[in-house]
């Protein structure tokens, strides 16, 4: 019950201060050239761990066998296998993973912006419901798109092939990545805006060069 009496007096003061800060913040979202954080190395050479989990190693071996050096196995941990793949092959790898390894849905699609490498990484976390031996497993499929300094979402080189025809479940996730990072998914049937306001005309907000106010 702490709301009690202080409120009425506070009204006026708050109103005034809020007004001014509102006007001040309308112009706040300029892309401030911010010192990029010391970078995570792009493709760090993975020192081969001594003892790899057997089952997970089997999965990664199957993929390596099929695609050879088009892909790169970033790590094999317990329950998690991560594959880095170029954007030309991501569609093929996804199809192979679905048809041969019986992964059947994408849990999450995340974008990670690496301004130092001039690349935006898109990470698919793929899981399986239909194969109970894979229930614990998550296959991490990462690919990278070229990053533009001055993005024009949809009309620049930041493009990736869509996986929507392989995994139906990426539909909304890829729409989200498009508005948050400006990565256009070629072949996606519905590349509209999803979460941001209709009149958003700024940089895609999750890019690293989009600075939030006061930071």
């Amino acid at each position: 019950m702490h709301a009690a009496s202080g409120e009425d007096q506070e009204d006026e003061g708050q109103e005034v201060c809020m007004m001014s800060s509102d006007t001040a913040t309308t112009a706040e979202k300029k892309p401030v050239a911010k010192a990029p954080p010391p970078k995570p190395a792009a493709k760090k050479p993975e020192p081969e761990p001594v003892e790899l989990p057997v089952f997970e190693k089997g999965i990664s071996d199957k993929i390596v066998e099929k695609f050879g050096d088009k892909i790169e196995v970033a790590f094999v941990k317990e329950d998690r296998v991560r594959i880095n793949v170029g954007k030309e092959d991501v569609h093929d790898v996804a199809e192979f993973v679905r048809d041969e390894l019986s992964y059947d849905h994408v849990e999450s699609v995340s974008g990670v912006d690496y301004p130092q490498d001039n690349e935006i990484e898109v990470v698919y976390h793929i899981g399986s419901y239909s194969d109970s031996s894979l229930a614990r497993q998550v296959l991490v499929l990462a690919t990278r798109a070229q990053r533009e300094t001055n993005p024009i979402p949809g009309n620049d080189a930041t493009k990736l092939p869509t996986l929507r025809d392989v995994f139906y479940s990426v539909e909304f996730h890829e729409r989200e990545i498009f508005e948050m990072f400006g990565v256009f998914f070629e072949g996606h049937p519905d590349n509209r805006r999803l979460l941001l306001p209709e009149d958003w005309a700024d940089l895609p907000p999750l890019r690293k060069d989009f600075a939030i106010k006061g930071r």
């Binding site: 954080p37 010391p38 995570p40 999450s108 995340s110 990670v112 990470v123 976390h125």
Partner: peptide, 14 residues
Amino acid sequence: GCYIVSDGKPEPYR
């Protein structure tokens, strides 16, 4: 699910 990327700083990278 929660996907965290860290770059060795006190703040998560993503």
